[in-house]
Design a protein around this nucleic acid. Structure first.
Length: 392
DNA sequence: AAGGGAACCAACCGCGGCTCC
DNA sequence: CGGAGCCGCGGTTGGTTCCCT
């Protein structure tokens, strides 16, 4: 029982699709929609398994598919999203209209990955391959890098939740008039396909695991002298693709909102979740509406999430139009440095490739450099900018 | 022109998660 | 609660095309 038999076992056709098969599938879906993929082949008169039909439709026959060479902007988006999301091709594809996950995956594996490797950049960590970490630590770093990527994806989903629910709220009634949680709507997130609106508590709590992991690894690596490695620990901070974590003597914080309910923060004595958020926001100096602390907390949370969203999306949504004065469209820095918050380099918001060592580029170094500076959207000056050593 | 290797890409495979019963 | 069925995802394969010698 369990798994259904594969195509071969039930004598169905495999391999390349013929034009006739394509036509059958196309016309059936145009008339009836795909419905159940498993039932579709028989109804459409195809000697194929449902899986094969689904794949053929999604990757080839769907009308809204763009084929052909990837543009510079698309490549840049793929690289930056891969740094954030890892090999989550469907999530990456959701940010590239008309491109399929399979196509992006192929392009990455056959092209971008090799080019990055050739440049001395580890395509899995998006950092220069020269690392002072030992192999074990490097493995830990890689694992945490992936965890960070998942965290980033999750944050993105959360910010979308907040933004969309806020939009929905403001379209009907003023936001502050809500006494309870934002209206429950079923909007699917592009990345996770999970319902977007959830109670804040359930949205935020999973971040604690990664924070703990970060803390543990940092504690381990802090005692070991490192130079320009995956972790920049020279001044007590940690860097990962989208955030900088900061440690003070007694406080472990994260620059984005999830840290606001970290158990290490003060004001966690109450069981009232919203009040905890509000109090912790106050702790960070964020103004809260004293009359309505829960609503204020939610609004601040939304703002923080929106900022996060801008960081993730601004390259994607704004910068690529060459006819637009991009400097005027860049989002404001998330928060200023030196107070436990992130300092964001607007020219390279992810902080990736900031330590790119051009000496690692072999062969036609200048051409490579020019190309990748364009692809990565890293200003030439940023290669040795103060941000490259920030770890603030 | 021919052969061999590299590159590309469509398609397959197996796993995990979700839903339904 | 657990098993069955289905879908979607990501890794991998294998056929085709391209390029170099």
């Amino acid at each position: 029982m369990g798994r259904s038999p594969c195509c071969e076992k039930v004598g169905l056709k495999k391999g390349t699709w013929t034009a006739e098969e394509d036509q059958k599938l196309l016309s059936y879906i145009e008339r009836h929609g795909h419905g159940s993929w498993r039932a579709l082949p028989a109804k459409a008169g195809l000697q194929r398994c449902g899986k094969s039909c689904r794949l053929r439709w999604i990757n080839y026959l769907r009308p809204d598919i763009k084929r052909g060479k990837f543009s510079l902007e698309e490549e840049r988006t793929i690289i930056q999203l891969h740094a954030l999301l890892g090999n989550r091709w469907s999530a990456i594809a959701s940010h590239l209209p008309k491109r399929t996950d399979n196509e992006i995956k192929n392009h990455w594996n056959t092209n971008l990955k090799k080019r990055l490797t050739k440049m001395g950049i580890d395509p899995s960590t998006h950092k220069p391959m020269t690392s002072a970490l030992g192999s074990g630590q490097h493995k830990d770093a890689a694992n945490l890098g992936h965890m960070a990527q998942w965290e980033s994806a999750r944050l993105e989903a959360e910010s979308r939740i907040v933004r969309e629910s806020k939009l929905l709220s403001t379209s009907t009634t003023p936001y502050h008039s809500h006494l309870g949680p934002p209206a429950q709507v079923t909007v699917l997130n592009k990345v996770t396909d999970v319902p977007l609106v959830q109670p804040l508590k359930s949205m935020v709590s999973p971040c604690l695991d990664i924070l703990k992991a970060w803390q543990e690894t940092w504690t381990t690596t802090k005692s070991i002298p490192t130079t320009n490695a995956f972790f920049s620990t020279s001044n007590g901070s940690l860097q990962f693709p989208t955030s900088t974590l900061h440690f003070s003597d007694n406080l472990f914080t994260m620059s984005q909102a999830p840290g606001l309910i970290c158990d290490d923060l003060p004001f966690n004595s109450t069981n009232n979740y919203e009040a905890r958020v509000a109090n912790n926001l106050k702790y960070f100096g964020k103004p809260i509406d004293d009359d309505q602390p829960e609503i204020g907390a939610r609004m601040e949370y939304s703002k923080l999430m929106d900022s996060k969203m801008q960081l993730i999306n601004h390259d994607n949504d704004i910068q690529y139009d060459p006819n637009i004065d991009q400097d005027n469209l860049r989002p404001p820095n998330f928060v200023v440095a030196d107070d436990g918050y992130n300092l964001v380099d607007n020219h390279n918001p992810t902080g990736l490739y900031q330590d790119l060592d051009c000496s690692l580029l072999g062969g036609d170094l200048e051409d490579n450099k020019i190309y990748w500076v364009k692809v990565l959207n890293v200003e030439t000056s940023a290669l040795d900018s103060p941000f490259s050593k920030r770890g603030i």
